[in-house]
Amino acid sequence: MRGIKNWGLISATTAMIFFAGTAPAQAYLDPGTGSLVLQAAIGVVAGSLVALRIYWGKIKSFFKRKNSRDGRDSRFTDRK
């Protein structure tokens, strides 16, 4: 469980470092605070989903490795 939390934190931090300063407030029209709060929230959710997907991939590959080490029938585990 600790793993998931860390991943979320890592990806959020990475995203913030990566995007900080690259998302400029340069609109010539007022974007409206309501819309920006919404989009910031969407951004966080989208970021978390990406983090979850990466983490899920890690879990899958972990079990795949484990399975092949256990010498299971590779006809089932190697299917893509």
Partner: peptide, 13 residues
């Protein structure tokens, strides 16, 4: 610019 908001969202709505 990568990561920018959709600044015209409210206007579109």
């Amino acid at each position: 610019r990568d990561g920018e908001y959709w600044f015209a969202h409210r206007q579109f709505l």
